[in-house]
Amino acid sequence: MTAVRRGLSSGLVQAFLVLIGLIWLTPLGGLFLSSMRSAEDTAKGGWWTALLAPGQLSFDNYGSLLKNSGMTQAFWNTVLISVPTTALVVVLAALAGYAFAWLDFPGRDAVFLVVVALLVVPVQIGLLPVAKLFGQLGLFGSIPGVVLFHVAYGLPFAVFLLRNYFAEIPQEMLEAARMDGGTEWRIFRQLVLPVARPALASLAVFQFLWVWNDMLVALLFADSSAQPLTVALQSQTRQFGSNIDVLAPGAFLSLIVPLVVFFAFQRHFVQGVMAGSVK
């Protein structure tokens, strides 16, 4: 282990990792430069030509994007879909995970087995039946309909993840809290949730990224007034040659928000992913 640590800390390895990082960031940098170029400059050459002619870069495209009511509405639709979905999945999965891990009720193992079995159900199977159901309920084409679909299909994995994490909490700690007069709700809220913060943060990041970048569900369940940014950008690609000045900044905006969310929760995310890997 010591030899491995010394090898990873060597200058050559660190230089190699920096090189890999730069290569990975190259498409992001190219998209950012493209988003700051006019359609005429883009037609003349690739984004790398802007490195030799920085005068062609400006934020005019972003100003035009903010004045595009369709794109701004799509951005806020994406927020209204992603944030409630992530919050509902985390809250409901935390409650269910604690119940499956530490509460004794009839049929607990059978119900949890059904939850685990739902993990193997492809999302494509439920598209048409759920679309028909939402049509009967008046939810088809609306933001609440898209949110409910994502919540339903995100809960099995979320419950499975949090249940396994909660089960690793020492039983003696929970028994001591019960002996001190703590109710199950108080134990869950003041003891279990703080301990499970890394797992909750990891789940929130995964769920947010999944919903923010989704296009399949939104393409089917959202109408023109509820379409998120992914669907709006997809519709813009039909005219790629004439509206690159709208498509590029919109794509960069769609990309930068998940990156900000990831880096904001990076510390908790890494703790959650590494939980249980070291005894």
Rank of each mutant, 00 (worst) to 15 (best):
L119V: 06
V121E: 05
F112G: 04
G135E: 04
P106C: 09
R5P: 04
L127K: 10
D104A: 14
G141L: 09
R37V: 07
V4C: 12
G138P: 00
L22D: 09
T49F: 10
R37D: 01
L103H: 12
S69G: 12
A110S: 10
L31N: 01
V4R: 15
K132E: 14
L8T: 10
L25T: 02
S64C: 04
A15P: 01
G11C: 07
S10A: 08
R37C: 00
F75A: 04
F105E: 10
G21H: 12
V13I: 14
A117I: 08
S35D: 00
G138M: 01
V18S: 11
L88E: 05
L52W: 14
L128C: 05
R37L: 03
V116P: 01
M71N: 03
M36E: 02
V114T: 09
K44V: 13
V116A: 13
S69H: 13
L127Y: 14
N68C: 03
S82N: 04
G141Q: 07
F16A: 15
Q14R: 15
A3E: 14
A53N: 15
V121K: 05
S142K: 09
S34I: 01
F140W: 10
A15S: 15
P27F: 01
L118G: 09
D41G: 05
G97H: 05
T42L: 15
Y62K: 00
A39T: 12
V130Q: 07
G29W: 02
P27A: 03
G46H: 03
A131S: 13
I23N: 10
L19T: 09
I81N: 00
I23P: 08
F16D: 05
D104N: 14
L52Y: 13
Q14M: 13
T85F: 08
G21C: 07
K44E: 13
Q14P: 03
A99M: 11
L137V: 05
L119A: 10
A99D: 09
G29S: 01
V120F: 14
L66A: 11
L33N: 02
V91A: 15
A96T: 05
F105V: 12
V18Y: 13
L8C: 11
G126W: 01
S10L: 06
G135P: 01
A39C: 01
A50F: 00
A101L: 08
R5N: 09
V111Y: 08
